[in-house]
Write a protein that binds this DNA or RNA. Structure first.
Lengths: 160, 160
DNA sequence: GTAAACTACTTAGCAAGCTAACTAGTTTGT
DNA sequence: ACAAACTAGTTAGCTTGCTAAGTAGTTTAC
C-alpha cells in the first residue's frame, strides 16, 4: 500500500520534471536558433499566429499565444517600433487594438520560417506520425485537467 | 507534396505549442497551490531533491533542478535566510558549498508534501500507468533530441 | 613548481513571464 | 438615462529564468 503510493508519487514527480525539462529544452532550442536571426521566440510565434489567422485584436492574440495582456503589450511595442506590425483602433469597439503585419513583418516571417526549417526541428526526430498524435493527445489531456481544476482564470476576481 | 509539408509543419507546431502550454499550466498549478502555503515551486523542488538524495553541492543540485548556477544561488540565499537550509564549505574542495536541510527545512518539506497531495495532483487524472510510462518516454526522447542537436551546454566557451 | 586552464560560486544586469492597479470604452439593469 | 459592472489595453513593479564577468580554489602541463 505504502509502496504503491510512493511509486505513484514518484511517477507523477518524474513526469512533472520531464515535462518541465522538455518544454524548457525545446523552447531554448528555438530561442537559440531564432537569436541567430536577431529575433526571438515571442516574435516568431506572434508573426506565425498573425500569418495564420489574419489581423487580430490583442486579446485574441494573447489567448492564442498563451500569455497575459501586459506581456503581449511589451512584445508588440517592440515589434511596432521595429516596424514588423501596426496597431490601429477600430471604430466598432474603440477599446480594442487590431494588430496587423506590415510588409517588413511578412519578410521577417519568411526569414524566420527559413531559420526554423533550416535548424531542422530535430525536436521530433524519430517520432512516427502516430506517436506525434498520441503525444499531442497526452499534452492536451494535461492541459484540460489543469484547466478543469484551476480557478478558471477570470480576468476579474471571482468573488468580491 | 506541398500539402504534406504543411501538415508536417502544422503537426510540429501544434506539438511545440501544446508542450509549452502543458508545462506552463502544470507549473502554474503547482505554483498556485504552493503559494497558499507561503512557498514556491523552486523551494519545493529543492527540498524534494535534498530529501531524496541527501546533502548535495550546489552544482549537483542545480543540474538536478535544471537551472543555472546563478538562479540556484538566489533561491538558496533566500532559503538560507528563512532557515530551511544551511550551506557550508567542505575541506576537501573549498570551492564547493554543501547544501543541507535544517529541521525547519524538513518540517517545510512535510508541509509542502501535504499541500501537494491535498491539491490532488489532478494533472494526470485519467492516465493509466502505461500511458504515463509512454508519456514520460516521449518527453525523454524530446529532451535527448534537443541535447543531441544543441551546442551541448559547456560552462565555458567551446572554442578559445 | 608554477603558469595556464578549468571549476564552483557570486554579483550584476537583462529578458520574459506574472499580478495589481489605472484609464478609457462598452454593456447591462433598473 | 444613467449607474454599475465589465472589458481592452497600458503602466508599475515583482519573480524567476538567463548570460557575462569576477573571485577563489583546483588540476594539468611543462
Amino acid at each position: 500500500m505504502r509502496d504503491d503510493e510512493d511509486m505513484a508519487t514518484g511517477a507523477r514527480h518524474t513526469l512533472g520534471r520531464q515535462l518541465n525539462f522538455a518544454a524548457k529544452a525545446a523552447r531554448g532550442y528555438m530561442e537559440q536558433h531564432l537569436a541567430t536571426a536577431g529575433s526571438s521566440f515571442a516574435v516568431w510565434t506572434a508573426l506565425f499566429a498573425l500569418k495564420a489567422k489574419g489581423p487580430l485584436i490583442q486579446r485574441e492574440l494573447a489567448d492564442m499565444l498563451g500569455v497575459e495582456g501586459p506581456t503581449l503589450t511589451r512584445h508588440l511595442a517592440r515589434m511596432e517600433a521595429e516596424g514588423l506590425i501596426v496597431r490601429r483602433r477600430t471604430s466598432s469597439d474603440r477599446r480594442a487594438a487590431v494588430v496587423d503585419m506590415t510588409d517588413a513583418g511578412r519578410q521577417m516571417f519568411e526569414r524566420l520560417s527559413a531559420v526554423v526549417s533550416a535548424s531542422g526541428e530535430h525536436v521530433l526526430d524519430g517520432f512516427s506520425p502516430e506517436e506525434i498524435d498520441q503525444f499531442v493527445g497526452y499534452l492536451t489531456r494535461v492541459i484540460r485537467n489543469v484547466e478543469t481544476f484551476s480557478p478558471a482564470r477570470r480576468h476579474t476576481p471571482v468573488h468580491s
